[in-house]
């Protein structure tokens, strides 16, 4: 009987979870990056999947339970998760992770964001005052975040400091080699003009010097309208647009309509880890995105 009571209270107070760290990643890309560094030393939970638009996540009960257990939370920041993360943090009432606390990483703090709006007005749609938050699609940003994650993990679990930094260094060295190879491979994409649904691929395009000629959304977060789409047919012709890209969680209809009107290919890029069957790791994410874009360039 005493044993049962002990087990009950250990479960209640979370003592059974002292063996592994719990990492709560807001998006699959940060879960994948955390895995490279923490490996088997942590249980990693991704709050979202590649089929979800991370702007619009409900503060579901399961998310509250998961963040309640977390020792470290890794998110993109720049207001990407502003619609749900503050709420689940407040509801969970965790003593380990809080807004503004040490164990909450916003990658945007360490990265120079792009496309900062010149004016902040909701009439311009869903604007992000801190710049574009979809920052994981520039692989250099992952190098920077890898280091930050290792530092934070070392702070929480000092005994394994060397382990985390070893993994992070190895990851960066290997990833660096791939970045250089991807840059050579993607040369043909330099200077190409494209259209996206939402500006959520901007970091990828910025890295590979691809130009965004327009977006299917008339304004960020506002769904495509027929008037705007017919204007885009003109944009496609004028700018010699090479392909139309959208993410797995976005409606394919506007892209397919525009593709049908103009003959330019519409492609779904994986956007994050798990975005398609071939994208299982961060390495696959860039490899596959570049392959798909190169294929789309062929006439």
């Amino acid at each position: 009987m005493k044993k049962i009571i002990f087990i009950f209270f250990s479960v209640l107070l979370g003592h059974t979870e002292a063996f592994a760290l719990n990492i709560f990643a807001c998006e699959p890309e940060w879960a994948a990056l955390a895995k490279e560094i923490a490996q088997d030393k942590a249980d990693i939970y991704s709050a979202t999947t590649a089929t979800q638009d991370v702007h619009f996540i409900q503060a579901r009960p399961s998310l509250i339970a998961q963040i309640r257990k977390a020792d470290l939370v890794i998110c993109s920041g720049a207001d990407l998760e502003v619609g749900w993360l503050p709420l689940i943090l407040r509801k969970a009432g965790s003593s380990k992770v809080q807004e503004g606390g040490d164990n909450l990483i916003y990658a945007s703090y360490y990265i120079d964001t792009i496309e900062k709006p010149v004016r902040i007005d909701r009439a311009d749609g869903d604007v992000h005052p801190d710049g574009n938050p979809h920052l994981h699609l520039n692989p250099y940003n992952l190098l920077k975040t890898a280091f930050v994650i290792a530092e934070k993990l070392a702070g929480i679990d000092p005994e394994n400091t060397a382990f985390y930094h070893e993994n992070e260094k190895t990851f960066r060295a290997v990833f660096w080699e791939h970045i250089k190879r991807w840059e050579r491979k993607a040369k043909a994409l330099n200077g190409a003009s494209v259209i996206t649904n939402h500006r959520n691929m901007s970091y990828l395009f910025d890295w590979l010097k691809i130009k965004t000629a327009g977006t299917l959304e008339p304004k960020p977060g506002i769904p495509a309208t027929s008037k705007h789409l017919s204007e885009l047919t003109e944009t496609v012709r004028k700018n010699n647009v090479r392909f139309i890209a959208y993410a797995p969680f976005e409606s394919p209809k506007p892209a397919q309509w525009l593709s049908g009107q103009t003959g330019v290919k519409a492609i779904v890029l994986p956007y994050t880890v798990g975005g398609n069957g071939q994208t299982k790791t961060l390495f696959d994410l860039f490899e596959n995105s570049i392959d798909l874009m190169l294929q789309a360039m062929e006439k």
Partner: peptide, 30 residues
């Protein structure tokens, strides 16, 4: 530091160069 990392003409960096640059990056982030 970030620009140095991104610079394409350093693509043929040796492993030692690479590690040096990663160390530099670490210090900058710190």
């Amino acid at each position: 530091a970030m620009a140095a990392l991104a610079c394409p003409f350093q693509a043929q960096a040796t492993e030692q160069d690479l590690l040096n640059r990663i160390n530099l990056l670490e210090n900058r982030i710190k």
